[in-house]
Structures are given as structure tokens and as C-alpha cells.
Design a protein around this nucleic acid. Structure first.
Lengths: 349, 349
DNA sequence: CCTATATACTGAAACGTTACAGATTGTCAC
DNA sequence: GTGACAATCTGTAACGTTTCAGTATATAGG
């Protein structure tokens, strides 16, 4: 008698992308059994389990994301929420690569969810939550009282923040220790004889503004140096604005002989401003700056730098979110990155 | 008599995320009708159509992506495929922002699919196609004979390349006119009296290596200048390698008095190498460089720059992919970005 | 008045997955 | 020999959507 199969089985043997039905047909088992066998359920015989997994590997079975997502609600997506205007500099790519590195051998995909200056930063988060588009979220530009973190915490969506909040709520974060950066920077400047220091801080609304500022002022009083106010600009301002303000302040009678800069791009502007005022870096004034890639020493060898590793930050953030999704306690997924010491240029000769 | 509803209708009125069933219940129509009404199908009465759409807007209905994807195979996803090692510089973020800008008011999401140096560049593409993870793909680091483009073309997956191919196959692309860049650069250098020029080219395997090289050599013979070979390094090499090689070549008897550099980061290295050799930019040698953000003039004001807009590139690439998905002819979705003229620093005073 | 046809709407099935509630064995205690 | 129970497997339904093949009503043609 000819082999008679039901029409359904016929289709399962077809040459499209393999599904559970395909596997069920090939192994002679039911789809349920196959599904359970693939996830090592205990009620499946050891022999069967291995057989199914072998066949699955052989034919390159990959679960259909839409099927899983529809049935379970699990998206296998991590969303990185970015501000389109501010996060201009290269570090965005580094964060992305850091995240990618970590999720590379997981089933997760990375989706980038941007928002523009005009929008409420909460908008993209609301969208993600309401449409259930992601299992986990990474946010940056963290504020002390961050509505996004509060919102996500309320809905129970796993997330991690780049930077800390200060609301008495516990959630995963990764942060660079900007307090330590600022203190180290001031100490170093004091150590080479600088007494009148200015700080180019992060914008006031972000948490690490306070961190940098506190580190700066604490260290000032520790070393007995004085502050030249420089708070009409922040690292969010344009290159031109920072440059102009720097030139202005450098033309005053009582001018800074040292700068602490919280961002590499801003440092270029500070140096330009210094030189606009006819002064010379390393002679009239020194600048300690954070940098995320090793370029500032090429720019002016007199610059003093501290490295911040954004790729590491991305990796840590991804690990935190995955950890939380995996059931770890949010409080155990916090990390702080210690700055390198202040690095001066080494002459090649 | 009390209102009696079926159990199904009861559920549909529930407070979860609204679905077609919810809308069907609220309007008293069938799910099919609602589905069709939302997409302006002709066989739905105008009155009904408006009513459904009104209610849908009121309660904030958004189609479930997993449902659509499972049923239709449409993912509403564009994938940007990036190399984790090379695409270090900031321009990655610009491309991402450009893409985001364009897909912002479409149902599309952007997923970033990275691959590392060790992998076959075809791997991530194969993954995307085999798992049906994206409706469209954007690839960069395009080669004259690009297996990825060929593969995608064979499978009929819409894509766009950043950079052109040279295989006689038609597909959407966006490219910066590197031939024009190189010729302009050479002409400018010749115009200020430079006669012995060196080119820091893109890596040989990429299509725009040839573009830059052809522009360079064509313009050389046009202006009657000569080439100093500098092809042991490319812009893919490390800062240190480029710097060393530059210093070496600048210490020779017959050394370049002009450089054309195809990337901003590499230009920093070239300048450092020049200065390592004890020579001075603007006096002993001039450098024309591409840049994607306005920073090189801050670095050394003597630098001559040409701007390349990566945000625009991202936007164009996204538009191309969406256009192809939307049924436009691939051949009509190609664009070339014309370089600005060579810009010298303007003194502020 | 009956049939054809257009208009407006509808239920069932399917996409691939997992959870639930069985079903079929075989083993063992008594 | 019977009942209990564990071990192993299976069918059905559901997630939300769209497509297919209708059904019901009204309009027009003869």
C-alpha cells in the first residue's frame, strides 16, 4: 500500500523554514513533545530529548520569534533609548558595540529607539511599554529624579540606567565615578601648581552633574585651591558657545590656570578658547579631560586625560538588563567604573 | 432582561491592551470588518470605516506586531548591519540617527546587527534572511564584488548599501563621491603650490578605495603633480601605525608636501606623524581631510577639510530601503553625495 | 415575482508557539 | 489480579492578525 500521510504531515515535510511541525514529522513525535524536548523539560525521556535536539541541530531549526512572542509575550528584544540631539559623539557607537558583544550569543536583538529634543523623554518609554516591544530597556542621560526609571519600575519592566538616580529606588545601573574623576583631576592640577580652577560640568539636570561638582568642590577645599565660576556653559552646549565663554573667562584679570572638562569634544572647544585668548596650554593653563577614545593627546600633547570606557559601559548595562530579566535582584546589578589616573603624554623619544 | 454577552465578548471588553477583538466588541462589528476598515479596504462602508477608525484612535489601538508578523511574515524591521571593529568613529551614531529620523513616523523599528572581524561578513546577512528577521537591510563597507549584495539580491530581500558595488547588478545605494573629493583635494593642494602628494586611502577591498585612488591619480596628472607612494597603510590601520608610517615617509629626502586623507581619525595620526618628523603643518606640508563633524579645524587650524554628512547618508539609506519595500524600482533609489569644496580655517579676528 | 449582482459584512482557518488537561503505558505493592 | 502511580507522550486551545470563502441584504433587470 502506498504511504498515506495526512495532508498536514505532507506540508510539514515541505522545504520552507523548519518549524516544530517539521521536527514532529521527522521524529514521529507530537509538536508538544518536540517543544518540550527542546527546552529540556523533565517529563521527556532522555533518549527522546537527545534525538529531538540532534535533529533540530541538523536541520538548523530556529524558533519563530513571532510565534514565541505572540504566545508568550516574550520579545527577546532589548531596547536602547537614545537622545538624537545630545548623544552626538562617538561614544554611542561604543555603547552599542558593548551591548552587542554581550547579547551576541543570546537570542536577544538590539533595537535602537531614538527620541528628539522636542519630545518628552518619557514618550519612547511609554511606547515601548504600551506596545510591549521589549523585554528590557537601557536608558541614558539619567536624572536624579528620573520619571523614566520610576515609570519602568512601576510597570515592572527590567531596565538599566547609564548613570545613577537619586530617588531612593533600587534599580540596575552602570556609572562612571565622576566624583572620583573630578577629585583626581583637581588633585593633579594642584599637584602641578594650579590654584584657580574651573569646571566644565555636565548639564545640571543630569545626575552626574552633582557628582562631578561635588568631587570638584570637595577636592578644591582639600587642596586649598579656588574655583573660577564657569557654570554658564555645560558639555551640552555647542562647541562655539563653549569656545567663546572660555575665551571670555581667560581674558579676565583673575582667570583660571586649570580646567576640568567632563567631555572630550568640549575639551577641544576649551583649548580653542584658551588659544583665542592668546594663552598657551601647558604654560598658562592646564586642562584635565575625560576622553573615550585615545585621541586627545594627539590633539594637544599637553592635555591631561582620564579614560572612560563606553564599550565596557554598554556591556555592563546589557549584562544588568539580562540579569534582571533572568531573575537576579536589581540591587545586585549595579556597577561603578573607577577612572584611570590622570595620564600625561609620554614623549616618544 | 440583563445584558447577556458571550464569554468571548466579555473578555474583549477587558482592560488589557486593545486588540481587534476589543474594537469589534466596541463597534459591534466582526473582527474581519474591523481589520479591513482600519486599512481602508474598499468593500467597507465609508460610514463604518470612519467609525472604526475613530474608535481605534480614541482607545489607542496599535496592531500587535507579533500577530501581524506571524500571519503575514512582515516584520516591520530594518536591520543595520555593522562591523564591530572598524566602524569605530562617531559616524556610526550619525548613520543611526539619520535612519531613525526617517523611520520615526513609520511602523518600522531599527535593529542593529553587529558582526566582528573574525566572522564572515555574510554570516549576519544569512542569519537575517534565514530567520526572516527584517524586511530590509542596510549594509556598509561595500565591496566592488560584494557577496552580501549578491546574496540579498538573489533572495529578493530589499536592501541598500552605503557605498557602491561594481558587479553590473542594480540595487539602491548611497555614496559619497570620493572621486570628486580626491580630485578637489589634489587641485586645492596644487593650487597652493604643493607638488608631491600622498594619499591615505580607504582599505583596498572596499569600493571607494578605487574611487579615491582614481580621483587622486587623475587629478595628479591634470595638475602635473607627482605621487609619493603611501599605500602600506589605509584608514583602517591603527592610529599608531599611520602615525609611524607618516613619520617615516616624512623623514625621507623626497617627502610629500601634501596629504589627502580619507578619514578624520586618520588625519590626527598623519598630523602627529608629521610633527614627529619635526615638520610643521601649513609650512612644510598641507593636509586635506574628510571629516564628519566640525572638529578638525579645532585640532589644527591649518588643516583643510571637506565635510561628509553621515546623518544624511543614514537618512538616504533608510529612504532607499523603505522605497524598495514599498515597490519602487531599485535603480531609482541610488544617490551620490557631492562633497563640499575644500574649506580652510577662517580666522575669527 | 424571480433571478442576478453589487454592497457590506462575517466566521473559520491559519501562521508557530506554549500551557493545560488528558491519554497510554508499564511497574509495583498488596 | 487489582489499584495506584510514575513516566512519557499527545491533542486542543489560545495568543492577534489576515485571508478565504462565504452570507445577508438591497437594488436592478427581465
Amino acid at each position: 500500500m502506498d504511504r498515506h500521510q495526512t495532508e498536514k504531515d505532507d506540508e510539514a515535510s515541505g522545504q520552507g523554514r523548519p518549524t516544530l511541525k517539521t521536527l514532529a514529522f521527522m521524529t514521529g513525535l507530537g509538536v508538544t513533545t518536540v517543544s518540550r524536548a527542546l527546552k529540556d523539560a523533565p517529563e521527556i525521556g532522555a533518549e527522546t530529548r537527545r534525538r529531538v535536539q540532534l535533529v533540530a541541530k541538523q536541520i538548523g531549526y530556529r524558533p519563530n520569534r513571532a510565534g514565541v512572542r505572540l504566545r508568550t509575550g516574550k520579545t527577546n528584544v532589548i531596547s536602547l533609548v537614545l537622545n538624537t540631539e545630545h548623544e552626538i559623539m562617538s561614544f554611542v557607537s561604543d555603547i552599542i558595540y558593548g551591548v552587542s558583544e554581550v547579547i551576541a550569543d543570546t537570542p536577544y536583538h538590539l533595537i535602537v529607539t531614538p527620541y528628539s529634543r522636542s519630545q518628552d523623554p518619557l514618550d519612547p518609554i511609554r511606547y515601548l511599554v504600551e506596545t510591549g516591544s521589549a523585554d528590557g530597556v537601557i536608558i541614558s542621560r539619567t536624572q536624579p529624579n528620573d520619571p523614566r526609571a520610576r515609570y519602568l519600575l512601576e510597570r515592572g519592566i527590567p531596565f538599566a540606567t547609564h548613570g545613577r538616580t537619586d530617588m531612593g529606588l533600587i534599580h540596575p545601573y552602570h556609572d562612571f565615578d565622576n566624583y572620583a574623576f573630578a577629585t583626581e583631576a583637581v588633585r593633579h592640577l594642584a599637584g602641578i601648581g594650579r590654584r584657580r580652577l574651573a569646571l566644565l560640568a555636565p548639564p545640571v539636570e543630569l545626575t552626574y552633574h552633582r557628582h562631578a561638582l561635588n568631587g570638584f568642590t570637595d577636592a578644591l577645599s582639600e587642596v586649598g585651591a579656588s574655583e573660577i565660576p564657569f557654570n554658564t556653559v555645560s558639555i551640552d552646549h555647542s562647541i562655539e558657545q563653549i569656545r567663546m565663554r572660555t575665551a571670555q573667562v581667560m581674558r579676565r584679570d583673575v582667570r583660571p590656570d586649570g580646567f576640568v572638562s567632563s567631555a572630550a569634544a568640549a575639551t577641544l572647544a576649551i583649548v580653542a578658547g584658551i588659544e583665542d585668548a592668546g594663552l598657551k596650554l601647558g604654560r598658562d593653563v592646564d586642562v584635565v579631560s575625560k576622553q573615550s577614545s585615545d585621541l586627545l593627546h594627539l590633539f594637544r600633547r599637553e592635555l591631561l586625560v582620564v579614560n572612560e570606557n563606553f564599550r565596557l559601559a554598554g556591556a555592563e548595562l546589557a549584562r544588568s538588563v539580562l540579569g534582571w530579566i533572568g531573575g537576579a535582584a536589581p540591587g545586585s546589578l549595579q556597577s561603578l567604573s573607577v577612572p584611570t589616573e590622570v595620564l600625561a603624554y609620554r614623549r616618544l623619544d
